[in-house]
């Protein structure tokens, strides 16, 4: 379900005034509706949960023309009630950020530079490497002669930064390939 500003307000029971107070930081009646209109009058509102620590603060994300224009604390959320720390408050700068990686990169053996590649090429080549390494290092039995059916030559770490659904299919994928060395942030 995608929440438009309108349906979001219905779902959440928030009032425009409530939003406006958190938008402009003060509650003078005349000013607040005007300020809220200025910034988000045509914006779509979706909700998200902060990607930093595990308190799970809810954040309103305003977007217009398909692009995020503002993020701020969600006043309806029981955990944070509109508050955010400096990291959560900077979510906009994480999303709208010129330093983000926007193309797959490849570094050949012994090369000194990255080179831009296409997704298809990168994924094809990775799949080839995985298959070669798996086929070469797959162990049907261990040193004691017990059946183990595992891929010895590939390891993986990650990731607590992924969504639950991604974590689930990632471990399914790795275990499908027979990996035993599967770890992530929780271990460190």
């Amino acid at each position: 379900m995608e929440l438009t500003r309108r349906t979001f307000l219905q779902v959440s029971g928030a009032t425009v005034a409530g939003l406006a107070i958190s938008s402009v930081g003060f509650g003078l009646n005349g000013t607040r509706a005007y300020a809220a209109e200025l910034r988000t009058s045509k914006a779509k509102v979706t909700t998200t949960i902060c990607p930093y620590c595990a308190v799970g603060c809810s954040i309103l994300v305003h977007s217009a023309g398909g692009k995020i224009i503002n993020t701020e604390g969600d006043p309806d959320a029981p955990i944070n009630r509109g508050s955010l720390c400096s990291k959560g408050a900077s979510l906009y700068h994480l999303a709208i950020n010129d330093d983000r990686l926007t193309k797959p990169l490849y570094r050949a053996p012994n090369a000194k530079e990255w080179k831009e590649v296409t997704w298809d090429w990168a994924l094809d080549e990775i799949a080839k490497r995985v298959k070669e390494s798996r086929d070469r290092t797959f162990a049907v039995k261990n040193a004691l002669g017990q059946v183990v059916n595992r891929t010895e030559g590939i390891a993986s770490v990650g990731s607590a930064a992924m969504d639950n659904e991604e974590c689930y299919i990632y471990q399914k994928f790795l275990r499908g390939l027979g990996l035993a060395y599967i770890e992530h942030q929780a271990r460190i």
């Binding site: 010895e152 590939i154 770490v157």
Partner: peptide, 11 residues
């Protein structure tokens, strides 16, 4: 030198 390949995914 045990591993040929390694995924560092979101880490």
């Amino acid at each position: 030198g045990k591993f040929e390949g390694f995924f560092s995914w979101g880490q």
